[in-house]
């Protein structure tokens, strides 16, 4: 069974069906792209996977160890606990907190000391907080952010904010990482650097990654498989080379008029 199996997932808002009958399989270790024109329902699909929206129908099954867990309808924090982590299209860092705190907050679910230790700072607290700090530093190192660990997130340049968001997502120790347009607003140089980091963290952390992206250079370069969404429906899937030549995909992106001409 694949790591994530999305089966006939549908979400309607009133009369509008934003995601319609979408089925997706993601295998362990894969790096999968999700593309489609604006308004195709990509982010809605992410929101369904991460528990922000409750599906109207269909199922989202995640393999965890030997068990299969149904994620549809679970709360976001619960989904994260099961091993899905995400970034946001419009960057949602904890802006007035330090870089360090952004990462440490995401480590929250793996902290074992309880409330009493939190109130009284027992030894357990100090021991675990030290470990936390070390781990956070290691993550920041990967994203070249350790020298800025005490800066407020809002003061980071745009590209570094995107990096910090990925670092923060990784801090939850996910098995599946969902990246929502990680290269949005980046210049080609930054995008290239990001491409490299994404590839690197996948190997380093044994991650499976699903990413939404408009930057085709990034998608075509690193994704092993691509799903294409249009008007909430899956219109194509397969390897990047095939997707590039797929007639329906070209139509969806360029409009029928062009292809007919």
């Amino acid at each position: 069974m694949p790591l994530l199996k999305v089966d006939k997932l549908t979400k309607s808002f009133g009369g509008l069906t934003a995601v319609s009958n979408v089925s997706i399989d993601i295998n362990k270790g894969e790096l999968v792209g999700l593309i489609g024109p604006n308004g195709a329902g990509k982010t809605t699909l992410f929101n369904l996977l991460t528990g922000v929206y409750v599906p109207s129908s269909g199922s989202i099954a995640l393999k965890k160890n030997a068990a299969t867990i149904e994620l549809g309808g679970k709360k976001p924090y619960h989904v994260t606990k099961e091993g899905l982590a995400r970034t946001f299209q419009n960057i949602r860092l904890f802006k007035d907190l330090t870089v360090m705190d952004n990462v440490r907050i995401a480590m929250h679910q793996n902290v074992k000391y309880g409330l009493v230790s939190a109130f009284l700072h027992f030894n357990k607290y100090h021991k675990e907080e030290d470990e936390l700090k070390a781990e956070a530093e290691r993550l920041l190192e990967i994203f070249h952010l350790s020298h800025k660990k005490m800066e407020l997130a809002r003061n980071l340049p745009y590209g570094e904010q995107r990096h910090l968001e990925i670092a923060r997502a990784l801090a939850t120790k996910p098995s599946l990482l969902l990246l929502d347009e990680p290269a949005a607003g980046m210049n080609p140089y930054e995008t290239a650097a990001l491409t490299e980091i994404i590839g690197w963290i996948r190997n380093e952390f044994g991650l499976t990654i699903l990413l939404i992206e408009h930057d085709m250079s990034l998608v075509m370069k690193i994704c092993e498989r691509i799903y294409v969404l249009d008007y909430g429906m899956l219109i194509a899937s397969g390897e990047p080379n095939k997707i590039k030549k797929n007639k329906r995909v070209i139509e969806a992106y360029l409009g029928e008029d062009v292809s007919n001409a």
Binding site: T50, V52, K75, P76, Y77, T80, K81, A85, R86, F88, R92, L93, F94, K95, D96, L97, D101, R104, I105, A106, M107, H108, Q109, V111, Y113, L115, S117, A118, F119, L120, H121, Y125, E129, L132, R168, A169, A171, T172
Partner: peptide, 27 residues
Amino acid sequence: NFLKSSPGRACIAIREDEIAAESMGIN
């Protein structure tokens, strides 16, 4: 002390951005 602990930071994260906090595994 509480504010300088993991549960305390979770509270502060809620103030900063409730949706992001929840997505980071905070109930």
